[in-house]
């Protein structure tokens, strides 16, 4: 269970993030999960100063474009680039775009964090 998790749609994202920015919250990080045909993106924020963390979550299809929050929180540039190159999340209007080669070199595997068939099968088996 993630505490104080708010599920939103990707269109609400910027408005919600703006609220955090207005309340001077700190951006903690984001994470991405491969749900098969969809990607689940979660952003974590912290009400600074203090240790009160809350989260925003949205789920998008693998081909869908997602707005970038780097216009509001520049610091999200690393995580958004990372999700873009490791998961194939289509983030548009990035403040600094590393063009898919922030972490990965030219000859690295493409979208390496997506689940392989083996992994999917193993997870299915465990679920049962």
């Amino acid at each position: 269970m993630i505490d104080k998790l708010k599920e939103i749609s990707k269109d609400q994202l910027l408005a919600e993030v703006k609220k955090y920015a207005d309340s001077k919250a700190k951006f903690v990080t984001g994470s991405c999960n491969d749900l098969g045909d969809k990607l689940e993106v979660t952003y974590y924020f912290n009400a600074s100063p203090g240790m009160d963390m809350s989260a925003l979550r949205f789920v998008v299809g693998k081909g869908e474009e997602v707005p970038s929050m780097t216009g509001i929180y520049l610091t999200a540039v690393l995580i958004e680039n990372e999700m873009k190159e490791l998961f194939g999340l289509k983030v548009k209007d990035l403040a600094i775009d590393f063009g898919g080669h922030m972490m990965l070199a030219q000859d690295s595997p493409v979208l390496p964090m997506l689940k392989s068939e083996d992994q999917k099968a193993a997870a299915q088996k465990g679920g049962k």
Partner: peptide, 11 residues
Amino acid sequence: GTRNLERLRVR
């Protein structure tokens, strides 16, 4: 539910 984790994220 398996002995493998579905996802681990480290920041």
